[in-house]
Design a protein around this nucleic acid. Structure first.
Lengths: 245, 245
DNA sequence: CAGTGGTCTAGACCACACG
DNA sequence: GTGTGGTCTAGACCACTGA
């Protein structure tokens, strides 16, 4: 139990201190899943603070998924589920810069067409909508890093039609000019076909990581993108996160 | 601007209403990235509530990554970065059940040994610690679904030595018996080698998704696991999430 | 039906960064 | 210096729900 105020971490605010104390009990295993943590009024007494402060601390633990609360019953340590994980999927240009390599970009093709009704991902952008279809290559140290195929809904982003995308990558441009509201990602593995292998300078059949992303703004499809990374050159790192939903 | 109280959503609390109003302005594009949102005292006036309520609303938007605050300057709409994403990595058994397929499990090998100093992932579990090394296969509808190699630190989880893991998968057992505190994941793509291909019943060289996970409890390594999924049979779905850090 | 958490108030003091 | 957000208080009322 955390009866006495902390002495070592002097710079923490009170609700952070309370939060850390409780988290420590949980993560150390002292308070196992299902354990009933002290009532708010008990913590108020222990820490000699107001109830709002205790409530703020516990609320943030609820947001982290560490604690589950039930009216009248109390607050309990949540049962952990490694279920959802926060994965870093940085902007490719940023990712390469972080590796300390010079970034390069090459536009392979650019054309305007209409969404095909047979393709699900294009329907998400709106049937019969005018699309800008781009194929491009991201380079790190002048070597292929990722192959990208992108569709942009010109009804949603008409300005895109005036951009050549010869100097700036579409992902970067979109991030600067269009606000997202929703995105969905899919991560899978495929073997590079002949065309992809040639573009990436790898052998046909090499295992690649395929990242698909679809972005909406207020229910309207903005863009769909497929990015193909040679499997041995890239991987996605995920940070810690317990149960999230 | 959100001057008048909501009328349709009657069940929302005040801070939720404020939060939703502001989020609406941002996601609709009315308040673009960099836009300075009203000061707290202005919102207090507009909504006729106390400052703590406004503060709670905005704080939650900061947690969502939608807003950035600077003392003395004000609060601003954050620039979106699709940077971090919440990926669902469910327990395999649960995942298969969700697909409506019967789950099967097969233990391929089980042996006790000591962590090798040359392998980084084993060092994370503690040099010279006794390890339980398990290889097993997850089946969906009696067909191979994932190949798993797992190391369990027996110093951290001595009870595991008494489990045969012939009936229950190690992942499931660990989830029920051991609390995590930290986990790290890596997602990459590899081509199946001969041994892996045979176990999974696929052709050698098939692209597979490789999921690696390391789990700690209070700084002590608990387990390390590599799960290999045939690329065409599995993919990871990610939910929406804007910038997270 | 009693006690929990959920919410809200009307103040307050402080650190900090900007002008 | 001055105004912002960051934090905290000492109350209060309410809804829900489990004993």
């Amino acid at each position: 139990m955390p009866p006495e105020p902390q002495e070592k971490g002097v710079k923490d605010t009170l609700h952070q201190t309370i939060c850390n104390d409780i988290r420590q009990q949980i993560l150390s295993g002292t308070w196992p899943p299902g354990y009933k943590i002290p009532f708010e009024h008990e913590l108020v007494e222990n820490y000699g603070c107001s109830r709002m402060t205790v409530n703020k601390a516990i609320t943030s633990l609820v947001d982290e998924g560490l604690i589950h609360r039930r009216r009248r019953a109390g607050s309990f340590v949540a049962r952990p589920k490694i279920q959802s994980v926060i994965v870093d999927i940085p902007d490719i240009q940023t990712e390469i810069a972080n590796r300390g390599q010079p970034y390069g970009f090459s536009l392979l093709s650019r054309r305007k067409r209409t969404a095909q009704k047979r393709k699900a991902e294009e329907l998400e952008l709106g049937a019969d909508n005018p699309l800008l279809e781009l194929r491009c290559l991201h380079l790190a140290s002048n070597r292929p890093f990722a192959l990208e195929m992108r569709l942009i809904n010109l009804n949603a982003v008409p300005e895109a039609e005036g951009i050549t995308f010869e100097d700036v990558s579409p992902g970067h441009w979109l991030l600067e000019h269009v606000a997202w509201s929703k995105a969905q990602h899919r991560i899978s593995a495929i073997s590079a076909n002949a065309e992809q292998a040639e573009a990436l300078g790898i052998e046909e059949g090499t295992a690649c990581l395929l990242l698909e992303r679809q972005t909406w703004r207020g229910g309207e499809g903005i863009t769909y993108v497929r990015q193909l990374f040679p499997g041995d050159a890239y991987n996605l790192l995920a940070r810690f996160s317990p149960a999230f939903g």
